[in-house]
Design a protein around this nucleic acid. Structure first.
Lengths: 218, 218
DNA sequence: ATTCACGAAAATTTCGATATTTTTGTTTAA
DNA sequence: TTAAACAAAAATATCGAAATTTTCGTGAAT
């Protein structure tokens, strides 16, 4: 999460904005729930206007829904939107992976190995104790870091930003639809497949592994 | 422009928001220009807070830049960002075109023919009189309609939304970088190539024509 | 019993005033 | 002359109250 705070759109609301965003994509709010600035302000100790601004910004990415004179709410669980998000994420992430494989050097390989090492460690622990809230949060963070590292050498800051947007949207809808934690046993070997293909500089295998991984994620 | 007003994120600011967005992507504002809510309010007869909200929303799509305690401004012309926008647009539009070609029926073909007919008509007129502000605005509208129709049958509302976002971002940066109107002689036959490939259901030719068209656009 | 109309309550939107931060201009010291 | 310190002005951010819109509950008419 730390890395995200350093985003270019840093501002005074940074804590509230990112904290709220994190809670949204971690399914802390029930789909369909009304998000009233007047209530939320109490949790963050700021004014309703500020919350309104933040909610508007989140609505741009589809993380909250807005309707004129009806306010904001958590998007309803929608299998269709979830599928659209999956496909879009595959499109973006495969392109980012291809470019990274082409442009990335030894340093990138090392970062991939590091990210996967952390992820694999946490996934093995989480597999044993899937009720641990703490491990779940760690897994979310490591999963994000792995996928983000995969595309990090694509050379396009725009692609990286768009990837984060669709990653978050996909995660939110996935959790809303599946009602599980989003973790599957197969994750472990799927991530390994992706890592190996990336280190082998095998674009096709990497994209295939990615598409398979994401399709199964729901 | 009418079609866009019917966007899901309809609200009370709809006129101001879309009008301002249109002006941004039509290069009505000089890159780097400071956008002060306090000044802009006079043009729209509303409060500064409302403008601030709208500017925040536009900043989500990259159409305006925001810095904490420094306010908003029109993004500086950047060749690098323009190139990144081109590549991203190619990625999205090619995927949308592929899906439309696969899924679209006779109705879609007819809409493509209609959109191209209008576009070709305007392009020929605009070619003769490139100083006409009115024809330029018509061309912008027809160009958008043609490309939007091309992907309209992709089956994913998410892809369509993302396409609009990158289309606008690309157009804004293109106009900022090239300092021309964005219209080239070759546009006419490039659009025809794309139309023919689409009607022939030739995915590869269509994507190739699209990539060529967009690369040359800058 | 159902529908419609009306009014009260709640929620949302708008707004301008106040507080904070940044920028600008001036003076002073090195 | 340059740099630092300070003060004034401008710009930005925050906030809560007022205006508007929607929602909900009550009662009357079909």
């Amino acid at each position: 999460m730390e890395a995200r705070v350093l985003d270019k759109q840093a501002d005074g609301d940074v804590d509230i904005y990112w904290d709220f965003r994190r809670r949204l994509i971690s399914a802390h709010f029930e789909p369909g729930l009304k998000l009233k600035p007047e209530e939320l302000r109490l949790q963050y100790g700021c004014s309703a206007s500020q919350l309104r601004e933040i909610l508007f910004r989140l609505s741009c990415d589809g993380l909250v829904e807005f309707q004129d004179n009806k306010g904001f709410k958590v998007p309803l669980a929608s299998l269709e939107l979830c599928n659209e998000a999956v496909e879009h994420r595959i499109l973006i992430e495969c392109e980012g992976a291809r470019l990274s494989i082409e442009k990335g050097g030894l340093e990138w390989e090392a970062q991939m190995a590091a990210a996967h090492h952390k992820l694999a460690h946490v996934e093995n622990k989480f597999e044993a104790d899937q009720n641990s809230k703490e491990l779940f949060d760690m897994w979310c963070e490591c999963e994000w870091e792995f996928h983000e590292t995969l595309i990090s050498r694509c050379g396009s800051s725009l692609l990286i930003r768009k990837h984060r947007d669709i990653y978050d949207l996909h995660r939110m809808h996935m959790l809303a639809v599946s009602e599980g934690s989003g973790f599957r046993q197969d994750n472990i070997k799927e991530h390994l497949n992706i890592l190996n293909a990336a280190l082998d500089r095998d674009v096709e295998a990497c994209q295939k592994g990615l598409a398979n991984h994401l399709h199964k994620s729901g």
